[in-house]
């Protein structure tokens, strides 16, 4: 069984993003870029499934500019077998990403597609669900545990009220949550070994995908600030302040 894993190039999670003063976007020129942390967890899970003998090949896919090849390089160094870069110069929205992935699913016929539950730039949390809809297959989102047994996956999901377990027939799409696993560190020999791994570049335009970029971002603003309140000196004063607000 093949596993397809999506890797999105995003602003590194340690960068505090600022809105441009003219409201035209966020200032991200020259900041550190990394694999979306949820996607790293997706890749780690795919690698563990391969190491457990449940899968034979892990393919990493990124959609973006040539610079996204860096994220594929990292994915290959982590242990993926090969990489596919779907090249496009403009940022794409989740529906387009899902349509691109659907094309690759048709071509590669993976048993599982594992994606991050959301990207930490747009915070959309849509691509996995959209892909599952487009290929008319099961989805198991926000996974905190994945067990594959033959043609079935048992997935425990982090839901608002606790943990829900679903059983899905393969092929299926899984989106992963934070605590599914801890991604491995890359060692120098892994980077050297990854240099020889196959990398394929496809032009997005060549895939015949209809654009799903329907939404227009018209303005960006910093979040409304809460007013800084008072600092009380001790517990009696705290209780007094809460009583004064009618909260106790």
């Amino acid at each position: 069984m093949k596993i397809l894993v999506g890797l999105k190039r995003v602003v590194d999670y340690t960068v505090r993003v600022q809105v441009k003063p003219d409201g035209s976007g966020v200032a991200i020129d020259g900041v550190k870029m990394s694999i979306n942390p949820f996607d790293e967890i997706a890749l780690e899970e795919a690698l563990r499934l391969r190491e457990a003998g449940k899968a034979t090949e892990v393919i990493v896919v990124s959609i973006g500019q040539q610079t996204s090849m860096q994220q594929i390089d990292t994915g290959l160094a982590m242990g993926a077998n090969r990489g596919i870069l779907v090249k496009t110069d403009k940022p794409i929205q989740p529906l387009t990403a899902a349509r691109v992935l659907a094309k690759l699913v048709e071509k590669e016929q993976p048993g599982l597609v594992i994606l991050g539950k959301q990207a930490i730039d747009d915070d959309n949390s849509q691509t996995a669900q959209m892909l599952a809809a487009l290929i008319d297959r099961p989805q198991a989102t926000f996974a905190s545990k994945v067990e594959v047994d033959g043609n079935v996956a048992r997935v425990t999901r982090e839901v608002d009220v606790g943990l829900e377990t679903l059983e899905v027939d393969l092929p299926a799409v899984i989106s992963v949550d934070l605590r599914l696993n801890t991604p491995r560190f890359i060692k120098l020999p892994d980077i050297m070994k990854a240099k020889a791994k196959p990398r394929e570049t496809l032009e997005l335009a060549s895939l015949g995908v209809e654009s799903g970029d329907h939404l227009a971002a018209t303005h960006y603003a910093p979040p409304a600030k809460r007013q800084k309140g008072v600092v009380v000196k001790d517990v009696p004063e705290l209780i007094g302040a809460l009583k004064a607000k009618g909260l106790l």
Binding site: N124, M130, A133, L134, Q139, R157, D213
Partner: peptide
């Protein structure tokens, strides 16, 4: 925008062939 809604709404949008707005 609960785990139920976040799971369901993108699937609906994709079946309808439209984008989805999150949150």
């Amino acid at each position: 925008s609960t785990t139920v809604g976040k799971d369901l709404m993108p699937r609906i949008a994709a079946l309808l062939g439209v984008s989805q707005l999150s949150d």
